Amino acid sequence: MDLADMGAIAALLSVPVALITAWWNKRSAEKATDATLIAGRNQADASVAAVWVQGRNEHERWQYSALGDASAEFLRATDALVRTVERLPNLGHGEREASLAEHAMSVERAYVPLELLAPPDLLSPAKDLRSYCRLLERLALDRAVLRSTINALEAGWRPGNPETCDDHHHNAAYVAWQLLVDWDSKDDEEKWRDRDLLEFCLRDSVTVSDEQVAQILSQTAAPQPGRS
């Protein structure tokens, strides 16, 4: 083989080498592009994950803060209701119902956010407390009438010793007071027997209004013995 033949072979080989080189360069560029795309996608995924985690953490902080605020508001509302019930005997009859309704509604409104935010272990005692407040609301007005009547009767007989006092108004106030204090311990027959005496003593004590007398008699009503 002479130099001319070798030159021809070299010329023939130069074409595939050039093609291979071009293909290799193209493949390398594609790999670099793919790597760049993958790195970019990974970075994007990481950014999205970081934003999601941050958003979740911020939501959890907001939820915890909102739960704390809602719990505090609920406790304030229940405390205000209890204090209102304690003050009811000192209010006029017309004021009692409005004041009680206002604070009872505040408890109900304050409970609603807890239903949405509170976990079960916190919601359960909150629910029990709301039930207690509802029971308190149902009994509060009758309790206020009874408490205010007892207070008035105590003021009516305390100016003198009921055992030696000759003032029949004072004596009537004392007897009515004693009857009311012991009323829950009486059976139905005793309540029926003493109800007329209670009414007489309440009226004769001149310490309570006719409206209060009617309310007390309504609360102390008892079935007539022998009737179902």
Rank of each mutant, 00 (worst) to 15 (best):
I150A: 01
E108W: 02
D142F: 00
L153C: 07
W192M: 14
K127A: 11
S65F: 01
E95F: 13
A4R: 00
P225M: 04
Y64F: 14
D196K: 07
S99Y: 04
H168G: 10
L100E: 09
L136N: 15
V85C: 10
A222F: 05
N90Y: 15
A126G: 01
G156W: 02
H170S: 14
L12F: 06
P225W: 03
W52F: 15
A172M: 12
M105C: 06
R195Q: 14
L122N: 08
L19N: 10
C133P: 00
P89V: 12
S205H: 01
E73C: 06
A35H: 09
V112E: 11
V181C: 03
K31R: 11
S124P: 08
D188C: 12
L88D: 02
A32D: 12
A155E: 11
A44N: 06
Q54M: 03
P16L: 08
A39E: 08
L197D: 08
D167C: 12
D167W: 05
Q54T: 11
E108L: 03
W62L: 05
A140M: 04
A214M: 06
R134M: 12
A173E: 01
L75K: 10
T78C: 04
S28F: 03
D45V: 14
D45P: 04
R41S: 06
A66H: 09
H170T: 15
N42V: 11
N25E: 15
P16T: 10
A104T: 07
E163Q: 09
G55Y: 01
G68Y: 01
D167E: 13
L75R: 15
W157N: 10
E86C: 13
W24D: 08
A35I: 13
C133Q: 01
D196T: 13
T36M: 11
T21C: 15
P125D: 11
L129P: 03
H93T: 14
A32F: 05
L202S: 15
V85N: 12
I216H: 04
E199R: 04
R96I: 11
E86F: 11
A18I: 05
R27Y: 05
K26N: 11
R27D: 15
M105H: 10
E95R: 14
H93Q: 12
S228H: 05
K31L: 14
T33N: 11
D79W: 01
R61E: 13
V82H: 06
L88K: 00
